[in-house]
Design a protein around this nucleic acid. Sequence first.
DNA 1: CTGAAAGCGCTTACAG
DNA 2: CTGAAAGCGCTTACAG
Lengths: 361, 361
Amino acid sequence: MSKTKATIADVARAAGVSTATAGRVLGGYGYTSDDKKDNVLKAAQALGYRPNALARSLITGKTRTLGVVAGDIQNPFYASVLRGISNVAEANGFGLLITNSDELQSREVHSVELLAQKQVDGLIVTPSDTRRAKHLHNLRNMGVPLVLIDRAVAGLMVDRVATDNIAAAEQAVHHLIAAGHKRIGIVAELVDEERGSVDSFLARAASGEPIETETLYPSWQRLVGYIRAHRIAGIPIDPQLTRRAGSYSAQAAEVVTASLLASEKRPTALFTTDGTMSEGAMRAITHLQFSIPSDLSLVCFDDVDWMSFLRPGITTISQPRLAMGEAAARMLLERIRGETYPPRTVLMPAELVERGSVAAA
Amino acid sequence: MSKTKATIADVARAAGVSTATAGRVLGGYGYTSDDKKDNVLKAAQALGYRPNALARSLITGKTRTLGVVAGDIQNPFYASVLRGISNVAEANGFGLLITNSDELQSREVHSVELLAQKQVDGLIVTPSDTRRAKHLHNLRNMGVPLVLIDRAVAGLMVDRVATDNIAAAEQAVHHLIAAGHKRIGIVAELVDEERGSVDSFLARAASGEPIETETLYPSWQRLVGYIRAHRIAGIPIDPQLTRRAGSYSAQAAEVVTASLLASEKRPTALFTTDGTMSEGAMRAITHLQFSIPSDLSLVCFDDVDWMSFLRPGITTISQPRLAMGEAAARMLLERIRGETYPPRTVLMPAELVERGSVAAA
DNA sequence: CTGAAAGCGCTTACAG
DNA sequence: CTGAAAGCGCTTACAG
């Protein structure tokens, strides 16, 4: 067992050729006569030669590695998206350098820096701040291929893939309205210190004031969909029914849902805006012993595993998470290959999966 | 915006010092006078200098990157373990190169080769074959730090972290027996072409024949625990109650569970051996409209999110998945630092979480 | 403390 | 087709 790694120079010496020739056969570039090729291959085999990708990358300027900044790889949404990314990366011989931001911009900045230093060929990020993102603008200006998932960043013209959150949420809420519900609660993350209170947002939206929705966080976009469905149906919005978890955790959603369901004028139906909020809401519903759909109708967002085998099944908006990851990776690889078309926004179709959690009001 | 990246040479030139000096301040090694340091830092700032980790790694022989070969990052078990690994990696300034094997040895071999070429400082793998693993032995012989998670490999003496599957499963089944159950079904993955049929395994185990359990796949170990609990209680094993999914998918588990529950002499209780099997079993149970725990008692393995908010809650064995990942990463970092104690096996405690899915028989 | 030089393990023109 | 030489962007002895 050769404890010390063999280099191209070692192989060349053993095969009696120059390092250039050894490099050509081992690296698969340039031409070599068959007999020399044989010698080199045999020597490499005998020495247990393994190419050092670092050295190659230093010269070629390519690492065949993609960097990913996810919110939390443990979350089912990210886990699926990552699997999608991984699928196309591996199929193309690319490695994946993965980090978590926990939706904190400081950690995201740090991650991006780490990945950039490691010279990834491109980056896929779920930006934690949709407005300020100097590090991402920098990347773009340096010519580093970049694809955004799930969220856009104001003024940052790069490829991105997301769900049409407004349309999907509108469809979900419309489904409840069509079943006769008029008091529909919504439990959403809605973190954002700057865009003002939820109440003022609701007031502006309800009054029909135009809102820049492109760079809104997904949970706010879904709230817009909720509002739209109401406006279209001519149902007034009751601010009491809008509950902001304020952080991306099931626990926060549980607290907020419990309070909503315990309130005087509680809703007859509930819309939760993502997998984590749905989990929290479900915990509260279970804990309070509400029966679905007799006590409360429910439509969720994002089709998490348990929704299909809970009894009754949970009606939800299904996002193609795996396909989103695959699409993002594919776009990134195109950019890495040098494609130059203008920035693309791919809105993936989300569909309403009807199960048993909605009853007529 | 400098489209072209600045190197240490550029910074040195701008600062009027040698590349050695520039390197010393930028790389944080060696001593430099304060004024030169200032000049270099300013020049670096002005040029937007970003160190090239590739070049540094080529020299130092360290990449500060860990490689991970997981079964499937989308699976909640792996997703949590990975998050644990990521936690300690990031805290120590290490990056994470992650791949999926889909429990296929061919893919695992390919992943390991890719990661090795990229010169990771160490590897964490969930081996897909617990007996033959030449590539892992090679790694060890080359001196590459390696930590195994969840499974051992025959004859491969390296650090590993796992759950005491036999003890945990025995506890789970004992819990059912203590509630008065005598006909307890088990739905397990049990893939393995070589160790013979499940029946012969059951026969050997039931007869008290000693079995090499160390390198058994987890699902087989959990079957051993199931058998042990029966032997201790003096309850005979009915092979009809042992169902092998044969592949690691919820769908396979669903089919097998449905058939078990539809059989003449169906069990009064069921033990499922991991999160995926549990999901499949749950789907079958829901589909057949069995009520838990009145029609069937259930104890699962691995505490997946839905188990706690399904009504009734599902009693299960909880594995500290996050902590397993953290422990593995910590051990790996120790090895990378050069620690040389003999290979350690860390068996993490798994505990029975009692909820509402078990009724007295 | 600082600089000139060598070198990490490869690939890339450039001659022959 | 093949080899000698230069070089990717750094770090590391080695003198001074």
